[in-house]
């Protein structure tokens, strides 16, 4: 369930304030396996993706879904976050925050990153389309989008569509306004376990 978070131009966060992902999605600290903020370069994405595999060895189907969606959404942070981190003399990558957690019946992760108003509008439009579509319509939309020319970074325009198809859920997201032109964008992905542990 998405918590109610309302912000308007008259009630903005200070420039350097970053919302707490745990607070936004009312997550319990004891569920959190990884809590990270910083650059989303390939080393980090790959190393967390490998850790996800280790967390989910007992449930391969859930593990596969988590791994797939995690890489897609982490790459989105790397490519589209408007907060950049320098990772070498010649290269910057997007920065953001990440939580990975586990509940008795599901695995989840949350990503958060800063985006500008123009990106927010584009992103929100796309998510609303995705969330309004049934599965067959989503598969059709995937095919249409994948046939477009690849975007910058070689992206295939279907990361969010595949997230919805893979999780079989609408995309859970929030935009928190930081100032006139900047938003803190978060996505929450949860994957139901098939083999639920009895505790």
């Amino acid at each position: 369930m998405i918590p109610e978070v309302t912000n308007t131009l008259n009630n903005t966060y200070e420039l350097d304030f970053k919302p707490d992902l745990k607070e936004i999605y009312r997550l319990k600290p004891e569920e959190i396996l990884i809590d990270y903020s910083g650059p989303f370069d390939s080393d980090i994405i790959k190393s967390f993706a490998e850790k996800l595999k280790l967390f989910t060895t007992e449930d391969q189907q859930a593990g596969r879904k988590l791994f797939f969606t995690f890489i897609e959404l982490s790459q989105n942070v790397a490519f589209y976050s408007n907060e950049k981190s320098r990772i070498s003399d010649k290269k910057n990558t997007g920065a953001g925050s990440l939580l990975i957690g586990e509940k008795a019946s599901e695995y989840y992760f949350v990503t958060g990153n800063i985006i500008f108003l123009a990106s927010k509008n584009t992103l929100e439009r796309k998510i609303k389309i995705i969330n309004a579509l049934e599965k067959d319509e989503l598969r059709k939309y995937k095919k249409e989008q994948r046939n477009l020319l690849p975007g910058s970074n070689g992206n295939a325009h279907i990361g969010l569509i595949m997230t919805a198809l893979t999780t079989k859920k609408q995309i859970t997201y929030e935009f928190l306004q930081l100032d006139r032109n900047r938003f803190y964008f978060t996505i929450y992905v949860n994957i139901q376990k098939e083999n639920i542990k009895v505790k």
């Binding site: 791994f67 890489i71 897609e72 790459q75 994948r146 046939n147 295939a156």
Partner: peptide, 11 residues
């Protein structure tokens, strides 16, 4: 496993 950028190249 392949990511969505790869899926476009497979196409």
């Amino acid at each position: 496993y392949f990511n969505t950028s790869t899926s476009r190249c497979i196409l």
